[in-house]
């Protein structure tokens, strides 16, 4: 239960999340990659809180804020997907090319 072990697991989650975000084509899978990265961040935060910060209250606060960020990110992500799907019937990143030209 040593801190480096926890941090390595968190790093692994962040790595996988990054891979998922960059590699997947569909919006929803992309967002799941982001969720996984945030999950890793939260694990690291709690790890630090319990093993180094010695139970400082603000540590838990940070974790709750990360959770709030997760919720916000997901809500806005889904709203964007609905809006894009409604106007363009597109739900794969390939078809949004307006910024490219």
């Amino acid at each position: 239960m040593t801190l480096p072990a926890i941090l390595i697991v968190a790093a692994a989650l962040i790595g996988i999340g990054l891979y998922g975000t960059l590699s997947q084509q569909s919006f929803v899978m992309l967002m799941m990659g982001l969720e996984l990265m945030l999950n890793g961040v939260m694990l690291a935060a709690v790890g630090f809180w319990s093993l180094t910060a010695g139970g400082l209250p603000t540590g838990q606060l940070l974790a709750i804020i990360v959770m709030a960020v997760m919720a916000v990110e997901m809500a806005v992500g889904f709203a964007l997907i609905t809006a894009v799907y409604r106007s363009r019937q597109a739900d794969v990143t390939e078809s949004l090319t307006t910024l490219k030209h």
Binding site: Q25, T82, Y85, R86, D91
Partner: peptide, 22 residues
């Protein structure tokens, strides 16, 4: 089945009758 192979988007034949999300 993905970009290079299959149909990319589910193209519904009939427009939606409720909230425009076909």
């Amino acid at each position: 089945g993905g970009v290079p192979y299959g149909r990319m988007m589910p193209m519904p034949p009939t427009p939606d009758i409720r909230d425009g999300l076909a």
